[in-house]
């Protein structure tokens, strides 16, 4: 990515003229520190520090001139004030993806039979049910919470520890839910776009949600010790693999067809999140007892 190479090639020349309004104070102090202790420090470490500080300092997108109202409107709608920084992280993630994640995901898809991969996916989905349930409840969606609870009960037992998704066929289809959506249902706005290292597209609301979801997960708090840790890392690794493998074709398509994949992913992420939040908020099915007349099934929302 050109931004990345520009930032790293010669940090001194990329110093932004106006200081970034969103500039974190820590970035400034890191910068000063690295400048003061330069002589004492290993040269490459200083370089890395300076690059990082520059990265944070240079993180501000330049708004278009006020004389071009259409461009200004577009800039505000894009709402990506940290775009230069975001693009650097995008470039890094993309690089890691090309040499590491994508090849592993391809190998996984080619080497492991479909049924096994589906089973792995179902187990992982089942393990995440407690978090989904908690968020359904916090969003005040009893019917969705009921669906999630029944899925957990049925799939953990009849579905053999979650390997088979029998609940969907019994009328309890899967839906996703997370604390970012819960915050949205409480009226919290998404905020500016963020592209995070490792995690990818996000925004302040969904980033907070991600952290809260980890804290909400009972498995986060299960015991200690090597076995537990190993199982935990296995789960994280498999989740990443499962997620990456499931989007192989779609992601390849974006990379091939988009002129600016970064901007396309930004747009897709936003639209997708908004649609999901809307679907959850519009799901106002009643919760009558089994012997009463059942309301019509809600539109499929995953």
């Amino acid at each position: 990515m050109s931004i990345a190479s520009k930032t790293f090639a010669d940090p001194r020349t990329t110093m932004p003229t106006p200081p970034c309004p969103a500039q974190p104070a820590s970035a400034r102090s890191a910068m000063t520190r690295s400048a003061m202790t330069r002589s004492a420090m290993n040269r490459s470490a200083t370089g890395a520090l300076t690059a990082l500080a520059m990265l944070l300092l240079a993180g501000c997108a330049t708004p278009p001139p006020a004389s071009d109202p259409e461009a200004v409107a577009e800039f505000n709608q894009t709402n990506d004030p940290l775009e230069p920084t975001n693009r650097v992280f995008y470039a890094i993630n993309d690089g890691v993806d090309v040499v590491l994640l994508r090849p592993i995901a391809l190998a996984y898809r080619n080497a492991v039979p479909d049924q096994v991969r589906t089973g792995v996916h179902n187990v992982l989905t089942n393990l995440s049910t407690p978090v989904v349930l908690a968020n359904d409840m916090m969003q005040g969606k009893p019917r969705r919470a009921g669906d999630t609870l029944m899925r957990f009960v049925v799939n953990s037992t009849a579905g053999v520890a979650g390997i088979f998704d029998v609940a969907t066929d019994m009328g309890w289809p899967y839906h996703d839910s997370d604390f970012g959506m819960t915050l949205a249902s409480w009226g919290v706005g998404e905020g500016p776009y963020l592209y995070l290292p490792v995690l990818g597209p996000s925004n302040p609301r969904d980033t907070v949600g991600y952290g809260v979801d980890i804290a909400l997960d009972p498995l986060t708090w299960v015991g200690k010790g090597n076995n537990v840790d190993n199982l935990m890392y296995t789960r994280i690794g498999l989740s990443a693999l499962d997620a990456r493998a499931s989007v192989l074709d779609d992601f390849d398509k974006i990379q091939q067809q988009a002129l600016d994949p970064y901007a396309t992913i930004r747009s897709v992420y936003r639209q997708y999140r908004r649609a999901k939040i809307r679907a959850a908020q519009d799901d106002n099915r009643a919760t009558p007892p089994l012997w009463a007349t059942q309301p019509q099934a809600a539109p499929v929302s995953r």
Binding site: P201, D250, Y269, Q271
Partner: peptide, 15 residues
Amino acid sequence: MQTRRTLLAAGLAGV
């Protein structure tokens, strides 16, 4: 993770 998965399924868009 499910988020990303379906998110990019949406990218199927290209279709």
